[in-house]
Design a binder for these strands. Structure first.
Length: 499
RNA sequence: GAGCCGUUAGCUCAGUGGUAGAGCCCCUGCCUUUUAAGCAGGUUGUCGUGGGUUCGACCCCCACACGGCUCACCA
């Protein structure tokens, strides 16, 4: 018999006592005239007494002083103090509150607003009711809830106990709204494309595999939206975007969750230069709307999102940081040797482009604090982007980095169907050589392209990482309400729930 | 998948090879403007799980579970 069990039984006993008093501990509805914030706003500071209000919320603090009691209730809008007096409520109602209401219970209370001696606007309670009796205690009030595992597994407790957690997810919501507003105002159409796909594509990643019984067919959970959105550009929707979950069957880290939220957008008659302008304009706008200024703090740094952002080619960035000139070393052996000469040990990769990417990640990425567009990527790691006309081993692609986070990816989309087919074929050669993330050939997509796609700029960026940036969080789990965790065994759950 | 660290009361945390602790929470009493209310008294427990060493293990050893960080993979 554990302490929790005792406490739970104590509360069930209180629940039963309420029922014996003919009180429904879970009434189906409640009258409410004001939220906590509305009640506070309704009080005229010039007056001694405010209007009569009826409010509801969770009891978060109780101070019993004999025949008088102060308590705080909280709803989504904030906290509000209530004041109960035995001589005004009557002995029965007053004692019922003191004896049968616990911190955590939901109640409603009605009465006139007044200001206490210390100046706090408070409801002088004339009547109150139980809205929902709780059976388990809330986390402690001083230190709140710190245990990271409990915070993730029982996020509701985290939200109750930690105001900062509420703030993070409010920022998340406001960011997503602001992104939608920004794109809607510019004529983008929000669309939804399949999550279950017969062929995955649009990124380099391992998929989750599932199975549809009626169709007797394997499906993959999408790793990107790209190929379906481009089909819509073929179809004549010139500006489309989708916000949704992607799924990648890979490692979990402070920057990776197996399911994560991205936005992808495509704009016909645009190129990657247009996408760069769109990104920097959007992020500055988000900063203004959500944070009130274009400079934001992130992990101890001041990040200035004011456009224009720095642009640097991958070639120049690597040369500046590591002293290795990738254009002088266009095969793996040579590039590995050049890197080694600078004291950088590069592991063998499936191709030159991947080796360049590796070199970039090891040397340049950790230095990219202020917003930076890194442009012109190797073709081998960019099978869906258009070649640079004057350098066919590179493509018109950029990624942008803020606070060393890789935030997003964009290119001038490849709309030449025969080139696209060759790229897919090249990818299948990498796959045959053991590249597990090589892009599979999508014949259906090629047929779409053969019907004609206008010149198009495309962009994708991680919503979660954007939230990390704006909410100043170091771990992606802090910006996902229920991050992926290993399942607890049934036995351990039962032990902990004590029922 | 690998390395390191962590797991003690409902919560936040101390702790020692020799009878498990503190604060908050909770329970009882007093208290009619408190707000970390106060005062007096009281109860917390499979010390993550399972083995082993030992006269004796919360402590030492091994395995396992879960989590965190770093690395690998990736966005």
């Amino acid at each position: 018999m554990t302490d929790t069990h005792d406490r739970r039984e104590q509360r069930i006993e209180k629940l039963n006592q309420l029922r014996e008093l003919a009180v429904d501990p879970y009434p189906p509805r409640v009258e409410r005239t004001h939220t906590a914030a509305e009640a506070l706003a309704a009080f005229d500071p010039e007056q001694e007494q405010g209007p009569h209000v009826q409010v509801g919320g969770r009891v978060v603090a109780v101070r019993v002083m004999g025949r008088t009691t102060f308590a705080h209730i909280a709803d989504d809008s904030g906290r509000l103090q209530i004041y109960l007096r035995k001589n005004e409520l009557g002995e029965e109602s007053y004692d019922r509150f003191v004896k049968l209401i616990d911190i955590g219970d939901f109640i409603s209370a009605e009465g006139a607003l007044f200001r206490t001696r210390t100046g706090e606007i408070t409801v002088q309670v004339q009547g109150w009711e139980v809205l929902a009796k709780t059976l388990r205690p809330l986390p402690e009030k001083w230190h709140g809830l710190r245990d990271v595992e409990t915070r993730y597994r029982q996020r509701y407790l985290d939200l109750i106990a930690n105001e900062d957690t509420r703030r993070v997810f409010q920022i998340r919501s406001r960011l997503i709204s602001a992104i939608r507003r920004f794109l809607d105002e510019r004529g983008f159409l929000e669309v939804e494309t399949p999550v279950l796909q017969p062929i995955y594509g649009g990124a380099a990643a391992r998929p989750f595999t599932t199975y549809h019984n009626a169709l007797d067919q394997t499906f993959y959970l999408r790793i990107a939206d790209e190929l379906y959105l481009k089909r819509l550009i073929v179809g004549g929707f010139d500006r489309v975007y989708e916000i949704g979950h992607n799924f990648r069957n890979e490692g979990i880290s402070t920057q990776h969750n197996p399911e994560f939220t991205t936005i992808e957008l495509y704009q016909a008659y645009a190129d990657y230069e247009d996408m760069m302008r769109l990104v920097e304009t959007l992020y500055a706008e988000l900063a203004r709307q959500v944070m009130g200024q274009e400079t934001i703090p992130f992990q101890g740094q001041e990040i200035d999102l004011t456009p224009p952002w720095r642009r640097v080619t991958m070639h120049d960035a690597i040369l500046e940081t590591s002293g290795v000139d990738i254009e002088e070393h266009r095969d793996q052996e040579s590039l590995q040797a050049a890197a080694r000469a600078q004291g950088i040990d590069l592991p063998r990769q499936p191709n030159w482009g991947k080796l360049v990417e590796k070199l970039f990640e090891m040397t340049v990425e950790p230095s990219l604090i202020q917003p930076t567009f890194v442009i012109d990527y190797p073709i081998e790691i960019s099978p869906l982007a258009k070649k640079k006309p004057d350098a066919p081993h590179l493509v018109e692609r950029f990624e942008f980095f803020i606070g060393t986070l890789e935030c997003g990816n964009a290119f001038t989309e490849l709309n030449d169907p025969l080139d696209q087919r060759e790229r897919f074929v090249e990818q299948s050669r990498y796959a045959a050589q053991g590249d597990a993330e090589a892009h599979p050939l999508d014949e259906d997509f090629l047929i779409a392209l053969e019907h004609g796609m206008p010149p198009t700029g495309g962009l994708g960026f991680g919503i979660d990482r954007t939230v990390m940036l704006f909410a100043d969080q170091a771990s992606i789990r802090e910006v996902i309400l229920f991050p992926a965790l290993r399942q607890r065994s049934e036995a351990s759950l039962l032990t902990e729930s004590n029922v």
